[in-house]
Structures are given as structure tokens and as C-alpha cells.
Design a protein around this nucleic acid. Structure first.
Length: 831
RNA sequence: AGGGCCGUAGCCCAACAGGUAGAGGCGCAGAGCUUAGGACUCUGACAGUGCGGGUUCGAAUCCCGUCGGCCCUACCA
């Protein structure tokens, strides 16, 4: 099937390609989707945003789905007559450009900007209602300058800092990765096993905002997908418990441990320090030194994947020291082990083998004592090998004896606080955001390292620190240090403070910095005195509807929320959450699997559009199912969508040929008018509820009803047919913009159908004069009655009992109860 | 290992707050139109909601268990 030909009467045929060219040119000329900044414009403002694309080649099926969904929301708002901001830009820094440049011996900008042009053209063809005047690219110095400016503000506030630490290193990409970019011990980008390296790196102090990132989720409840909120909650990973101080023999300062189970303090039978923590090194007694060093070296060799395997048996080394339990003065041995993490809590734990499986595994391996302090009614952990972590009653615990676990926790914290050896505490799984990258195609970190002054901020008036332009091709190849280090004339500068010879920081920022605030930049994309105009952001923000894939559930969305809060604290934005509502569209897959080159199951968006037209492709992805569900291309039929579009088009064209705009619909066919107004009502409700697939089904019904009215009803000239056809054009404009415009024109209208044309249903046409009431006897349907929708319960009960069929089923049985739900149901319960 | 989401005709999906299981589409069968095919118009058949319990006058919908699929976290103290 092709969209282009057909033997139909010329005036009734829908020629997708011709319409695309025609309306694209019109939209380009008339600019109907540009947001208004006119202060006198008092239409409600609405900010709808799709996650901006990365410019890797042309748009693909995934973009087709995401942008079709976002466009339904934006176009609906345009139809309601609102002042809609629906901008577009490109997330144009990042590794693929750099890799392409190395391969082609060129500059990453060439590949990047060429791809952006291709994608921009594709967006225009795809008919997305975008405001092109606000276009931005994060790789433009005019944009990344403000990354640097923001970095410096963070730096001033102590929210950007540099420290040595064990970091995730991807050996293939030759760069460090944020925690969030490591999935199952592998690089999320290239799937290479990540190794640990100790490096001096820049971090953003996102952990300082952990509580607020968690608490402010209350604002998002019901407006973001529940699973995204859940993933963020898990990722932040708040644990409530207590810090407890243990004295270690031979050390002046006590060692603090974090525990979520301070109630089990009397059951601590040994003490474990992370093997890779400095503390382990410090505590190790001379006679254990050799054994410890050997253990530490062996542990360091393990990859994360090996280390994290739950199957693995516990390993460790005794440090030859003892810690003193602060509540009972007991001496317990101090061990080093790699099952304790240096970066979490204080890098040391009290081990309670009876009630913690990890500690129990360790105790059984090294024959350490196991003492129960909570009676849970289960078997002895020392014998069963199963730690009892549940509820129970405290035993062997001095003053806690007899208390329930939930009462013992606050009680022991009280006791510890009285003695000054502990306090309640909170810990987070969330780590600080590692933002340095040893790659070229990103934002240079605006810091100068001076031998005397240390880390010196590049003064604001010297921003942007632009990327050197003389590096290309092989210069960019990963070497484990940033390629920027090779640009001598770029690196060597004078210290802004003392004027001495100094060097620029040669790392670039994680590209997630770019995307953490771009939605603010759209409000004033060309401003050259600040990252954004705070007044404009006040007028537009926060974003009413954000649309994008669930793959960003943690990374991008968490970072953006963090940035927004920092900017709020700086007084630059007055909201604390950037995205009021979030819609996660699903993936487009094929034959049950993600599309991939190796499987050969890829579907090319351009090919599909050539075959079926933009309208049919858009309609297909939106109609396939609920927006958040994956679409299997093998299960859907763009050919069927095209067929429907043709049906809709013929109705509009025939109605347009038979009547003029402005006909009074009230003289038209009543049944069709009711169908039309039902459709308006139901499509509105479905769109508001993000059930776009259902909205389309409702339009299909109206097309069928109009078809019948033309063929075997009042005929094409009936005013009700015009009303139906206009409603089809208006509602369809959210999903299939080209055919909607063309249909609207055929119906005799001159302007675009897309703006301010949404209609409201006439309530008088929504009322039914009769409804079908189901009469059940013992919950089985036995009769149906046609009744008035406002029938009283008494009347309905009387009618139901009077039914002969019903009487037949009641027989001689006693009526025990009659449930009446007027006007739709009566259930007669017999005994 | 823990947590979450989802199982409805051959297939994709509907079913407002528990109230007639079916809106829409694909596919299939048939009829009209047609030289024929396609296109177009119309008609029809097909499930009792993964499985087992429970609550209720009434369960796809709520609760418990179980099986299957997907996702998240994963030695985080």
C-alpha cells in the first residue's frame, strides 16, 4: 500500500507526501507554535517539554514515539488556546561525537552539527509543534559558558569539590564514571567491566540534598510514574539508625559505626573494618601486618562484579586488635573484610551475627561467637545458619530485656545519648556525583591549578573557557588522561590570583551537567548575562509536562532535581521541583526484542514514513497502547492507521464539498449530533487522562458514525455531518496533524486547525433518554429494562420485580434482599 | 536475596469509583461493489479475565497464596 496513489476521485484522495510538503511550508511561514512573550498576552502559560535528543545520526523509532506523545500534550494545550512553550534543542556534547572524530580524523563538532541539522529537518517533517526560535545546543560556547558559571557558583558554596577517592573507571572509554553510570558493575554505555581506580576528581555534593530529594517527592506523588519515584527512593536509600562509638584498644579516638539495629548492640561479637579503608591500615597490629597486607592486596584485585557476588564466601583478616562494646564493656576482635564498604557509613561495622546474615556467614567461616539478643521464635542462627532479622523480644541485653524490637531501638538510643557514646543517625546510599571526565568533547572545568594558590576559579569575565580548536582526530584518542592536557598553549596560563605560571584543569564535565538545567535556558535562550532570565523562568516554570524515556529515571531526573534545589537556594528559581508532571513513554521494540543491528530487527523511521506517511506513523505509535507501554512493531499496523486516516479524510472532504462553514448544527441529524458531542466529551477526558490510544478509538467511532450518516442517513450536506467532520479535524489534529489541516481546509476554513479550536460538548446532547438496566436474580442477568436515566430506586425496584422473566427465576423462593443501583442495575437476592 | 509492575478473544488493547466482560484496531469468515484483484462499504464468529482460595448481593477490578513475564536495587550495616 502506498499513501501516494489510488484510483479514487482526486478530491477524495489523501496524498501524504504532498500534504506534508504543503503544510510544512505553511507552518514554517506562519509560525503557529512560537510561544508569546508579550506581557499583554494573558492566555494561561503552559510549558511542555520533551527530553532533548542526543544527535547520533537521524531520528529513530524511539524519538518517533516520545515526540508523538509529547506533541499530543502540547497540541492539546494549543487547541485549548493556551500560550504554550514547546521548545527543542540538542544534548550535543558526549562520547560518540568524539569517537566519530577519531575515526574520521576530524573535529567532533563536524559530526555533531551535521547530525543536528539532519534531525532538525526530520523534526520538521514529523510535524512536531515546536518553537524553533529557542533552539539550543549544549556544545555551543554560548551554552556551556553557563555550565562553567554554574560550576563556579557551586564551587563557591562548597557544593563542587575535588578529592582523592576510589572511582569507577571504564577501561574502554578511558574515563571515570559516576555511580549512576555503572550498571551491574559494567559501564552503562559500552558494557565493559568497570575497575576501581584511585584518582583526584571533581564531585558535586548531591548528598547534602539527599533529604530534600527524598522529601520533596511528596510534591510529585500521583504526577510522576510511581515506579520512577520508587527507583529514586531506592537510589537515595535512606536508612535510619544510630551512630555508636566503640573504643579500640590502643587508639585515643573512638571509632564510630553506623547501624540500623542498635537494639542488637548486646549481640555484637566482633567488629569489622572495610579492608580498603585507611582505618584498617591504621588499626592493624604489627604482628598481623603481613597477613593483613596480603589480604588487602588480594581483595584489591577483585573486580566489582566478583566482589559483589552474593554467592562468594566471606573473606577477611584479623587485625590483632580489640574494640570495647560501649554498653557492656565486652572486648570484641577487630577484623578487616571486603564485605564492609569503605564509602558507606563510617567504613566500619559492629557485627551481630545472630541477626544479620552477612555477619553470620562471616562468623561461621571464622568461628566467631554467635549470640542471640532478639528472640524471634525461630531456630538458633548458630545452628540453622539463618540469621533472624525480624521482630521479636530482646534477651541477653541488660536493660533492654523484655522490650520489643521497635521499643528497644529508641530506648538504646536514649541510653547511648545519656552516656555520650552514640546518637540517632541517618545514612544514605546516595554518593556524591562524580563529574570529571577525561575526555575532550565536553565542558572544560573552569579551574586553574596554581602551585601557590591551589584551585583558583576562572574569573566570571573570562568565561567561557572554550575548548581548544586545534585538536582533532588522533589527538582525541583516549589515553587515560584528558586529551586537553596535550594542548600546551591552552593548558599553560597565569594564575588569576597571583600571576604565577599555572595550569588549567584538563578534565571536562559529565554531560549530565548540561542537561541538568537546559529546561531553564529555553526561557531565555540567547541571554548573555546569566544562564537564564529569572523573571522569564518565573513566568514559564516549572515545566508542566515533561516527556521522556524511563532510562533516565535516576540519572538525569535526579540531577535535574538537585540542580533545581541548589538554584532555588541561590534565589534564582522560586520552585523546588523542575518537572510538575512526568510521562515515561515505552520503548519501540520488534518481535519481542529491542531493535539492534546484530538481531537485524531494526525498523527505520524514515522508511516507515516514506511508506505510510507521517500521520500514519504517528497515529500508529500513539494508538498502539497506553503511552508508557512498549510497542512491538510486529503487533501494530501502520497500514491500518493509513486506512483510517483515509476514511477520516474522505468524511471531511465530502462534508466540505457538500456544505459551507457556519451552518447551524442544531437543524442537523440528532443521532449524529449526539455521537459528535459524546466524542468531544470522551476524547477530552481520555486526553486529560493520558489515555491517548482510547482517544483515538473514540475518533474512529465518530468517523464510522459520520460515514453511515453520509451513506445511509441524512447525507453529506446535513449540518450534523459538517459538525462531525469538523470535530474529526479538530480532535485528529493532536495525532495526525497533516490530514487534520488538510481536512479543515477542505471544510472551508482558512486558518490552521491546530490553534484554539477545541470544542466543549453540549451537555444537552450528552443526556440519554433511556438507559439499559440489568436485572439480576442471584447475580445472574435475567432481564434488561429500558428506563429513564433519572428513575427513582423505588420505581426501578418495582419495575424489576414486575418483570415476568424475573418472576420466573424467582419462582417460589424468598426474596432476601434487593440491591438497587439506579439506573443501571437491580440484583434480587433469593434465599 | 529484597522490592515493584503486569497476565482479558488467534494478536494488540478497552472496561469511570467493584455493577451486562468488549470500545477501537489487526487477523479470520462472508456479503455488496468490481471483468478480476486491490481499494471501498457492510455483516459475522471467537474469551469469561494465568491458576487456587477469600471478602462481597455482586470481583478483570479489593485481599492472600501460586505460576509466568518484565523492571529496579543488590554484601549499603
Amino acid at each position: 500500500m502506498t499513501a501516494v496513489n489510488g484510483d479514487q476521485v482526486a478530491s477524495d484522495s489523501y496524498d501524504a507526501r504532498a500534504l506534508q510538503d504543503k503544510w510544512q511550508a505553511r507552518w514554517a511561514k506562519e509560525d503557529p507554535f512560537t510561544a508569546s512573550e508579550d506581557p499583554a498576552d494573558d492566555r494561561p502559560r503552559r510549558y511542555v517539554l520533551d527530553m532533548f535528543p542526543y544527535p547520533s545520526g537521524d531520528l529513530h523509532m524511539g524519538h518517533a514515539e516520545a515526540f508523538a506523545m509529547g506533541d499530543v500534550v502540547a497540541r492539546y494545550r494549543f487547541q485549548l488556546g493556551e500560550n504554550v512553550l514547546h521548545p527543542i534543542g540538542w544534548d550535543s556534547f558526549g562520547l560518540p561525537a568524539e569517537n566519530a572524530a577519531i575515526q574520521r580524523d576530524s573535529h567532533p563538532a563536524e559530526w555533531t552539527y551535521a547530525n543536528i541539522e539532519t534531525q532538525a529537518e526530520s523534526f520538521k517533517r514529523y510535524g512536531v509543534s515546536l518553537d524553533w526560535s529557542r533552539r539550543l545546543h549544549t556544545s555551543d560556547p554560548e551554552y556551556y559558558r553557563w555550565n562553567q558559571w554554574l560550576f563556579l557558583r557551586f564551587f563557591e558554596r562548597g557544593l563542587a569539590y575535588r578529592r582523592h577517592g576510589l572511582v569507577n573507571w571504564c577501561p574502554k572509554d578511558q574515563t571515570v564514571l559516576a555511580n549512576e553510570q555503572v550498571v551491574q558493575g559494567r559501564c552503562e554505555r559500552c558494557d565493559t567491566e568497570v575497575v576501581r581506580r584511585s584518582l583526584n576528581q571533581w564531585y558535586f555534593k548531591i548528598t547534602e540534598y539527599a533529604d530534600r530529594l527524598l522529601d520533596d517527592m511528596a510534591q510529585l506523588e500521583g504526577k510522576w510514574p510511581e515506579r520512577v519515584l520508587l527507583m529514586q527512593r531506592n537510589w537515595i536509600g535512606r536508612s535510619d539508625g544510630a551512630d555508636v562509638e566503640f573504643t579500640v584498644e590502643g587508639r585515643g579516638e573512638p571509632v564510630t559505626v553506623f547501624t540500623t539495629r542498635p537494639d542488637t548492640l548486646y549481640g555484637a561479637t566482633f567488629f569489622v573494618v572495610a579492608a580498603d579503608a585507611e582505618l584498617a591500615d591504621e588499626l592493624c597490629a604489627p604482628e598481623q601486618r603481613e597477613e593483613f597486607e596480603a589480604y588487602r592486596a588480594q581483595a584489591a584485585k577483585l573486580t566489582d562484579i566478583e566482589r559483589q557476588s552474593t554467592e562468594r564466601v566471606k573473606t577477611g583478616a584479623f587485625l590483632g586488635r580489640y574494640a570495647i562494646n560501649p554498653v557492656n564493656g565486652e572486648r570484641i576482635p577487630v577484623w578487616a573484610a571486603d564485605y564492609v564498604l569503605a564509602e558507606y557509613g563510617h567504613g566500619a561495622i559492629m557485627a551481630v551475627p545472630a541477626h544479620d546474615q552477612r555477619d553470620l556467614d562471616f562468623a561461621l567461616k571464622f568461628e566467631l561467637p554467635v549470640r542471640e539478643v532478639v528472640d524471634t521464635g525461630e531456630g538458633d542462627p548458630a545452628e540453622t545458619g539463618i540469621a533472624t532479622a525480624g521482630e521479636g523480644t530482646l534477651i541477653n541485653s541488660g536493660p533492654l530485656n523484655g522490650l520489643a524490637k521497635s521499643d528497644a531501638i529508641p530506648r538504646i538510643i536514649e541510653i547511648l545519648e545519656e552516656r555520650g557514646t552514640g546518637k540517632s543517625a541517618v545514612n544514605f546510599r546516595l554518593r556524591d556525583w562524580l563529574l570529571s571526565r577525561q575526555r575532550f568533547w565536553g565542558t572544560p572545568i573552569p579551574i586553574i591549578h596554581c602551585p601557590d594558590c591551589g584551585e583558583v576559579a576562572v574569573p566570571d569575565d573570562q568565561l567561557p573557557v572554550k575548548l581548544p580548536e586545534n585538536l582533532k582526530g588522533a589527538d582525541l584518542a583516549p589515553k587515560g588522561t584528558s586529551p586537553l592536557a596535550a594542548a600546551g598553549d591552552w593548558v599553560n596560563v597565569d594564575c588569576p590570583k597571583c600571576g604565577a605560571a599555572a595550569k588549567r584543569d584538563t578534565d571536562t564535565m559529565d554531560t549530565f551537567v548540561d542537561s541538568s538545567w537546559y529546561y531553564l535556558r529555553y526561557c531565555s535562550p540567547n541571554l548573555d548575562t546569566a544562564p537564564f532570565d529569572t523573571e522569564k523562568v518565573r513566568a514559564w516554570g516549572p515545566i508542566d509536562q515533561y516527556v521522556g524515556g524511563v532510562e533516565h529515571a535516576i540519572l538525569h531526573l535526579l540531577y535535574s532535581r538537585f540542580f533545581t534545589k541548589v538554584l532555588h537556594d541561590m534565589g534564582m528559581v522560586d520552585f523546588t521541583e523542575p518537572f510538575t508532571r512526568l510521562l515515561n513513554q515505552g520503548q519501540v521494540i520488534n518481535q519481542g526484542k529491542a531493535m539492534s543491528k546484530s538481531l537485524g530487527n531494526g525498523v527505520d523511521l524514515g522508511d516507515e514514513i516514506d511508506k505510510y506517511g507521517v500521520d500514519a506513523v504517528r497515529l500508529t505509535v500513539v494508538f498502539a497502547g497506553p503511552p508508557e507501554e512498549d510497542i512491538d512493531w510486529a503487533d501494530v499496523s501502520p497500514a491500518a492507521s493509513l486506512k483510517f486516516i483515509n476514511r477520516a479524510f474522505r468524511v471531511m472532504a465530502q462534508a466540505g464539498a457538500a456544505s459551507e462553514p457556519g451552518a447551524d448544527p442544531s437543524t442537523g441529524d440528532l443521532a449524529l449530533r449526539k455521537a459528535t458531542h459524546q466524542t468531544i466529551d470522551k476524547v477530552t477526558a481520555a486526553v486529560e487522562a493520558y489515555r491517548f490510544n482510547v482517544a483515538i478509538a473514540r475518533i474512529m467511532e465518530l468517523v464510522t458514525a459520520a460515514r453511515k450518516a453520509i451513506d445511509s442517513g441524512p447525507g453529506a450536506a446535513d449540518p450534523a455531518v459538517r459538525e462531525a467532520a469538523e470535530t474529526i479535524a479538530i480532535t485528529l489534529s493532536l495525532f495526525a496533524p497533516y490530514v487534520a489541516e488538510e481536512g479543515w481546509e477542505r471544510l472551508g476554513h482558512t486558518g490552521s486547525v491546530a490553534i484554539g479550536n477545541w470544542r466543549t460538548a453540549d451537555p444537552a446532547l450528552l443526556v440519554q433518554e433511556s438507559v439499559t438496566c440489568v436485572v439480576q436474580v442471584a447475580s445472574k442477568v435475567r432481564d434488561k429494562l429500558e428506563v429513564s436515566p433519572d428513575i427513582s430506586e423505588e420505581e426501578l425496584e418495582r419495575l424489576a420485580l414486575a418483570s415476568e422473566k424475573v418472576q420466573g427465576f424467582i419462582g417460589g423462593k424468598t426474596i432476601r434482599k434487593v440491591v438497587v443501583r439506579a439506573p443501571k442495575l437491580v440484583n434480587i437476592v433469593v434465599g
